[in-house]
């Protein structure tokens, strides 16, 4: 494996790790208002955060299992769609996560300024 390929792979893995937590935060924030999967993905993409379906749907399912989301099947435009929104527990956790993210962000900013 060439150095270039190895670097691309290393970057891809690190980017994946970096995005993982951010995506959860973005999804929870978007679901302050009710959405179904497809529109949620569009909304995230419109805000510059592309997420593929293979990541989004399992993530939604996991968050629901953890009690952070609630979902409901409902008919819209003659098709059954599953709508998600934050649960009361999810709202509390989101606030905590956002505070933590702000703290990390502030620290990073400081570190970057020092560097």
């Amino acid at each position: 494996m060439s150095n270039g390929t190895a670097n691309v792979e290393v970057f891809a893995n690190l980017k994946l790790e970096l995005r993982r937590g951010c995506l959860t935060l973005a999804v929870l924030t978007q679901l302050r208002s009710e959405r179904y999967g497809y529109t949620l993905r569009k909304a995230l993409a419109d805000d510059g955060l592309e997420i593929d379906e293979g990541t989004l749907y399992p993530l939604l399912r996991r968050l629901e299992t953890q009690g952070l989301l609630v979902s409901q099947w409902r008919e819209e435009d003659k098709r059954n769609k599953r709508f998600y929104r934050l649960s009361p527990v999810g709202e509390q956790i989101l606030e905590l996560l956002l505070a933590e993210w702000q703290r990390i962000n502030a620290s990073l900013r400081k570190i970057l300024q020092e560097a």
Partner: peptide, 10 residues
């Protein structure tokens, strides 16, 4: 899962 995946694909 299949119902949701089907809906998304549609």
């Amino acid at each position: 899962i299949i119902a949701e995946l089907s809906e998304d694909l549609h």
